[in-house]
Amino acid sequence: MNKTWLIYALGGGWGHLNRALSLGRIAAKYRKIRIITNSPYAQKISHEGCLVHWIPDDAGFSATCLKVREILLNIDYDCLIVDTFPRGLGGELADILPQLHSIPRILIHRDINPKYIIAKNLRDFVMANFNLVIVPGEGTDLGLADLPGVQHTAPWLIRNAEELPERNTTRTSRIMKVDKSVKIILVCAAGQASELNIFSQLALRLHQEFPECAVRILAANCPENCPESLWISHHPGIECLAASDIVIGGGGYNTVYECAAVGVPLVALAFERLYDRQAKRASKGYYVQDIEQAFGKAVPEAIATVRILLNQVKTANTQSAPAYVNGAVQAMYQIMSYKL
């Protein structure tokens, strides 16, 4: 019988769920994969061969913690993989993990605010409660990256390079509906739902400023006051990023590393997050600008940056196929080599 991996991927946006699916879909060829998530997008996309335990995002703090406890203590699994939050998003794993001493526990250490690491004494907690720590392409400048036995991979991506559709196929299909000779400016609204209006207004301004280009906004739901002709709802989003000429989005994990992987310049707005440091991540990307969140100032800076990049990017339809290493594949073998 196949062993079962349980992936804890709580978090309100795309990032945690997308990382879990990136690993889960690769490992599902060899293991049964269960994912716990409270992402509001979980019901809108393919689960990539994984079994998803969805906790409604409006369930409330106490109900969410109780549901996590119920799953972790009452189903069978051979390995627990925790994304980003060692103690759980609400601290609910702090008293559960010590009860799982017979089950290997693996932490996926994405960059988090060092103040949180200090406040919760995460160094000692991780050393006491996790058997392995994997850094998914975030480098060595992380609060827990110097712990003994930490392993690194390239960024985790939900598609390998050879799985991406040919660029013009995505551009001209019903997904994007753009002539292959026209440059595409893609606004990637993959952050929190409350930020959708910001990206919508930005897309409309870009549509006005660059009539020779095709402006599209990639979002789970069509923003209010945004023409449906500009809206794309498609998962995985990396397929749309790879078919674009310029991307504007946040400084979240997926947006930054997917754009870097497919070689598309990203103009990134670094939004404030409680735990994530978007400005730090955005500053090391390709053509990434650290633009202030204040919308009034961000728009003209974003437009000016797009104007510069449009003169630099190659003519539409001439970009070569991307080639990159998918860290999710590396991570699967690292975990499996731990005799799991």
Rank of each mutant, 00 (worst) to 15 (best):
M1E: 13
N2S: 14
W5G: 12
L6A: 06
G11Q: 00
G13I: 03
G13A: 13
G15V: 04
N18V: 12
A20G: 10
S22M: 09
G24C: 05
K29P: 00
A42V: 12
A42E: 10
I45K: 11
S46Q: 13
E48Q: 15
H53G: 00
L66I: 00
L66W: 00
I75A: 07
D76W: 10
T84E: 06
G88T: 07
G90Y: 15
E92D: 10
L93Y: 08
A94Y: 06
D95R: 11
L100Q: 02
H101Y: 12
I103D: 04
I106D: 03
L107W: 05
I108W: 07
D111W: 01
I112T: 08
I112Y: 01
P114R: 10
I117Y: 00
I117C: 08
K120C: 12
L122G: 06
D124Y: 00
N129S: 09
N129M: 09
V133L: 05
G137D: 11
G137P: 11
E138N: 05
G143P: 02
G143W: 02
L144V: 04
L144N: 04
A145S: 15
T153A: 03
T153K: 04
E163K: 05
L164Q: 11
L164Y: 05
R167Q: 14
T169G: 06
R174D: 13
A189W: 05
A190C: 01
G191S: 15
A193F: 07
L196E: 12
S200W: 00
Q201I: 01
Q201N: 13
L204Y: 13
L206G: 08
E209H: 11
E209P: 00
A214L: 03
N221L: 09
E224T: 13
N225C: 10
N225A: 14
N225M: 12
P227Q: 11
E228P: 00
E228I: 07
L230E: 09
S233T: 07
H234W: 14
P236V: 03
G237N: 14
G237V: 04
E239H: 09
L241R: 08
A242H: 08
A243I: 01
V247Q: 06
I248C: 14
C259F: 04
A261P: 04
V267L: 13
V267N: 06
A268H: 10
E272L: 14
E272D: 15
A279V: 12
A282F: 01
E292W: 05
E292Q: 14
G296H: 10
E301H: 10
A302L: 15
V313L: 01
S320V: 06
V325D: 08
N326Y: 04
N326I: 04
N326R: 10
N326L: 02
Q330F: 02
M332R: 01
M336T: 02
M336H: 07
K339A: 13
K339T: 13
